[in-house]
């Protein structure tokens, strides 16, 4: 083995160990125990069964799946609707202004998202800031119920996940040469036509990347559901969490997790089948 090769392995080792130990190994473990049986005391019996996967298709759980996908889907769509105008506006600014604005997008990451969720409680609750202002100015006469319901959950989801849509979409939009937009307008395209005919097709990789990064976590962010949904709702994230921590049925929790991984993989696979490149996802 040449010297060069040894160095290469030396530098790659931390990443390989990290991925193997903290991602691959636990996933294999989850896959393994999803075929186990649980006993009544939270333990596992290591016999092979696919009963866990059959149980997932129980009507109760299927409805949790559908509800999760619905909430994640709406979250993704709202994020897209907010992000596009934002990144297009940013991309027309002076390079320095662009940097400042994009840094501001990332500022919320500096605080733990759980704490930020509690911050939303202060804003959204019946006696919260938003309702007080709206009542005080006489815009509404009854306080709006902005939390412990679906709008509350969506506010939390969109708020938390928006940067994950903005960042890949921004890097995608900033690769569009300004003269292409000029050419489109020169050839008679309106702003809206230019958006759908030029900008959207060119930013599809970023759009998909962002959607994946919003949609997938949205299926599982149980703490948002717990805090802003008031624990009244169940999505995949809570379901898995409950199976592991409350019901102590690890094999069943593992089976749901594996299905979640499968759904995500299927989406990526579909993207590749449609001609998308994995490179575009990584760097976007």
């Amino acid at each position: 083995m040449s010297n060069k090769k040894i160095w290469k392995i030396f530098f790659l080792a931390p990443i390989i160990i990290y991925v193997a130990l903290l991602i691959a190994l636990p996933l294999c473990y989850i896959l393994l125990i999803s075929f186990f049986k649980s006993d009544y005391y939270g333990g596992m019996i290591s016999t092979f069964t696919i009963q866990n996967y059959i149980d997932v298709f129980d009507q109760v759980y299927v409805s949790v799946f559908l509800k999760s996908i619905l909430i994640a889907g709406i979250t993704t769509i709202i994020c897209i609707l907010i992000s596009y105008p934002f990144v297009i506006a940013v991309s027309h600014k002076h390079p320095r202004t662009q940097k400042i604005l994009m840094t501001l997008v990332m500022v919320p990451f500096l605080t733990n998202s759980l704490i930020r969720m509690y911050g939303w409680l202060v804003l959204l609750r019946k006696s919260g800031v938003i309702n007080q202002v709206l009542l005080g100015t006489g815009i509404i006469s009854e306080p709006l119920s902005l939390m412990y319901n679906i709008p509350g959950i969506l506010i939390g989801m969109v708020y938390t996940l928006l940067p994950f849509m903005i960042l890949p979409l921004y890097s995608s939009v900033s690769t569009i040469e300004p003269y292409l937009l000029e050419a489109a307008s020169d050839l008679g395209a309106s702003k809206i036509k230019t958006f759908f005919k030029i900008i959207v097709p060119q930013t599809l990789p970023g759009l998909f990347n962002g959607s994946l990064m919003v949609f997938t976590p949205a299926l599982g962010y149980f703490f948002i559901i717990d805090i802003l949904g008031g624990g009244k709702m169940m999505i995949l994230g809570n379901l898995i969490k409950n199976q592991f921590l409350t019901a102590r049925n690890w094999p069943f929790g593992a089976a749901i997790s594996i299905i979640l991984v499968l759904i995500t993989s299927l989406i990526i696979l579909a993207y590749r089948k449609l001609g998308g490149k994995m490179d575009d996802l990584g760097g976007a």
């Binding site: 040469e177 003269y179 292409l180 000029e182 050419a183 489109a184 307008s185 020169d186 050839l187 008679g188 395209a189 309106s190 005919k197 030029i198 097709p201 060119q202």
Partner: peptide, 20 residues
């Protein structure tokens, strides 16, 4: 008037063809 309302067309230096 906006470009689309002018009866002129531009040939850009770098062609500006729509890549997709």
């Amino acid at each position: 008037l906006e470009p689309k309302h002018r009866e002129v067309n531009t040939i850009f230096q770098n062609y500006a063809l729509f890549p997709l």
